[in-house]
């Protein structure tokens, strides 16, 4: 319908379109209820929103997870590095503690005894396996001489074989040329401890009739005035008493393991030190009171 050159149909549509928002505002002021016209759309829009929300949540959580992993990895690396460093420090501290304990024991031993001793460190061993010797880091410049005894806290190690100005070689008691006088601690029977060239030694020239069992301790005899008397030498491993043999065949295992020795004492002067346990007095017939009748 065209009147006054206006298409009134179009004008009516515009007016209705303009009034609708005003009507909806009015309806909202009354009750705040969901507009009926929106409800079908709300269902679909809700689904669409859920979809996008889930998707974005997934993206966010994956990103956060990934970022966390990177962070965790970096923290893990730092902690691992720190852990390794602390483990190394702990190991060093343990070593220092062991060394400290060892040195304290050495010092206490040195203070208790009247022997004149020089401490030395084991630095090496012999070039060929046929000679059981160790190299020390002290020599004639420190007062050492050939033939002096070398001991550790546990027991006797050997004697000085060669002495140079700054180092010396110790012949272990297991060396095939080593001979040291020994005593069976229990029975005080004498003999000679000779090395076999391997990792053990033997007790020779003992009385055939002595009582000896595996586990018995052999100590230094002190006859040569090189070793202090009564110092542990070796432990009996095996005793063989053959009918046709003149003496017992006694195999010994040294008290001191050469592998485990780090610091030693070289006895410059034993001063007659006797480390044997004190002998308890024995009652004799003359000590008994006379009988009265």
């Amino acid at each position: 319908m065209i009147f006054l050159n206006l298409n009134w149909r179009k004008v009516a549509l515009v007016i209705i379109a303009g009034l609708l928002p005003l009507l909806s505002i009015n309806m909202e002021q009354k009750g705040r209820e969901t507009d009926w016209i929106k409800q079908p759309f709300q269902l679909v829009s809700g689904l669409a929103q859920d979809l996008f929300f889930n998707f974005s949540y997934g993206v966010r959580s994956t990103t956060a997870h990934y970022l966390n992993l990177i962070n965790i990895k970096s923290v893990n690396e730092q902690l691992s590095e720190s852990n390794d460093r602390l483990k190394t420090e702990l190991m060093l501290l343990r070593e220092l503690e062991l060394e400290n304990n060892r040195l304290r024991d050495l010092l206490q031993f040195k203070q208790k005894t009247k022997m004149e001793m020089v401490t030395a460190r084991v630095v090496g061993r012999d070039l060929v396996p046929d000679y059981n010797t160790l190299t020390l880091n002290k020599g004639s410049d420190h007062g050492l001489k050939r033939g002096q005894a070398v001991i550790t806290l546990k027991g006797a190690l050997g004697t000085l074989l060669e002495v140079e100005p700054q180092r010396s070689h110790v012949m272990l008691i297991t060396d095939r040329y080593s001979v040291i006088d020994g005593l069976v601690e229990k029975t005080r029977a004498q003999g000679y401890v000779e090395g076999n060239g391997g990792s053990d030694c033997s007790l020779k020239y003992t009385d055939r009739n002595i009582e000896l069992n595996p586990g018995d301790l052999i100590v230094t005899g002190g006859l040569d005035n090189v070793f202090p008397k009564g110092f542990p030498l070796a432990v009996v491993e095996k005793v063989e008493n053959k009918a046709y043999s003149v003496a017992l065949k006694i195999e010994l295992k040294p008290i001191v393991e050469p592998n485990e020795v780090e610091e030693v004492f070289v006895v410059v002067n034993s001063l007659g030190e006797d480390l044997s346990p004190p002998v308890t007095s024995v009652t004799t017939a003359t000590d008994q009171p006379p009988r009265t009748e």
């Binding site: 090496g124 012999d126 070039l127 060929v128 046929d130 000679y131 010797t133 190299t135 060669e162």
Partner: peptide, 8 residues
């Protein structure tokens, strides 16, 4: 020379 490090 080598034997200087041994009791051989």
């Amino acid at each position: 020379a080598a034997s200087s490090l041994s009791s051989i």
